[in-house]
């Protein structure tokens, strides 16, 4: 027999001697085995389901953090307020080796943190004349004055001696901000913010609620307590002792090492690197050196040991594919 060979010298698989092989039986047995294994694993280990955190939970547990966060939304100091695309134009966001991909993406989910997260929900509160008066004072002030009031109050709250406690803030010219923030924490604790921050009746898109929650410290504190922090291999894990998404290990790995770990562009750099590595994986057959690794490290001799034993073929390492 003279095997037909491809350009790389590999013979046509259809000219080799054959043996009986029941593909359907193999699949059915595999299906039964996997089904049984799944049933057992599901019964023995179950799955994690820690209740979602609400804004009300957050406000009840840590009203001072709600006040600090809301003040940051007004002053522009919160994560969302200064984020940039796709939420606003407060910054350009990250870049990949100087290429502003985040900026190029554009503002597709516009969020005015001050008004969408704080002022508009407060305007929905009925029957609180003091709050109405404070909101009136706020709205009549210039944008610069608003930013100064909120910025000064945010700075005061963030002082180490104050520790975010509004009762310890030294006196100063904060305008109506302290009173508005106290009202805001009260509304949040009563559960009124959930719907007011949302953009639709159905609530399929909780982006605004999630961003507001994430601007505070409660979500991260809870995540870190469950070993889910960014420097704890973050989002590839899940709550409890479950495997999570181990297939994301390489992506998560880069966040644990320099220069990514301390870079302001860590996300863009890691994404860029992963895109290159992924492209490399897909194109292994075309990359000299990479495609030769299976010859240099002859695991294939184990896989096809019966064939090599019977045919006497050895695999010379000097040959290139």
């Amino acid at each position: 027999m003279s095997p037909r060979r491809k350009g790389d010298g590999t013979p046509d698989s259809h000219i080799f001697p054959t043996r009986p092989y029941d593909l359907v039986k193999e699949f059915v047995l595999a299906l039964v085995g996997v089904s049984l294994l799944t049933i057992v694993l599901g019964a023995v280990f179950g799955s994690p389901d820690e209740k979602a955190m609400t804004i009300q939970d957050w406000a009840k547990a840590n009203p001072n953090d709600v006040i600090l966060t809301a003040t940051g939304e007004l002053s522009g100091d919160s994560g969302t307020a200064g984020y940039g695309p796709p939420y606003n134009n407060a910054s350009d966001g990250q870049n990949l080796l100087g290429i502003p991909l985040q900026k190029w993406g554009g503002v597709t989910h516009p969020i005015d943190a001050a008004n969408d997260f704080v002022i508009n929900p407060l305007k929905d509160v009925q029957g609180d004349s003091a709050l109405t008066a404070n909101l009136d004072t706020w709205s009549k002030a210039s944008a610069d004055q608003q930013t100064k009031w909120a910025g000064d109050y945010y700075k005061a709250l963030s002082d180490d001696k104050v520790g975010g406690d509004p009762t310890k803030v030294p006196s100063g010219d904060y305008g109506p901000v302290p009173a508005m923030m106290a009202s805001y924490a009260k509304v949040a604790a009563e559960g009124g913010l959930e719907q007011q921050v949302s953009t639709s009746f159905y609530g399929f898109d909780p982006t605004r609620k999630l961003l507001l929650l994430a601007d505070g410290s409660a979500v991260e504190d809870r995540a870190r307590a469950s070993s889910l922090g960014g420097d704890q291999w973050g989002m590839m894990n899940e709550t409890g002792n479950y495997p999570g998404q181990p297939w994301l290990w390489l992506y998560t790995f880069w966040y644990q090492v320099e220069p990514f770990k301390s870079s302001d562009n860590a996300d863009a750099l890691v994404w860029g690197l992963m895109m290159v590595l992924t492209l490399g994986l897909a194109l292994v057959p075309l990359i000299p050196g990479l495609r030769n690794i299976p010859r240099w490290i002859p695991v294939h001799k184990l896989i096809w040991r019966d064939w090599y034993r019977r045919t006497g073929t050895t695999a010379p390492a000097r040959r290139t594919t």
Partner: peptide, 19 residues
């Protein structure tokens, strides 16, 4: 649930950073 809250708010930064 909480897992999805945490994962989504973390993952958004990676997705947003490259547009």
């Amino acid at each position: 649930n909480f897992d999805s809250q945490w994962i989504s708010t973390q993952a958004k930064d990676g997705m947003n950073s490259v547009g």
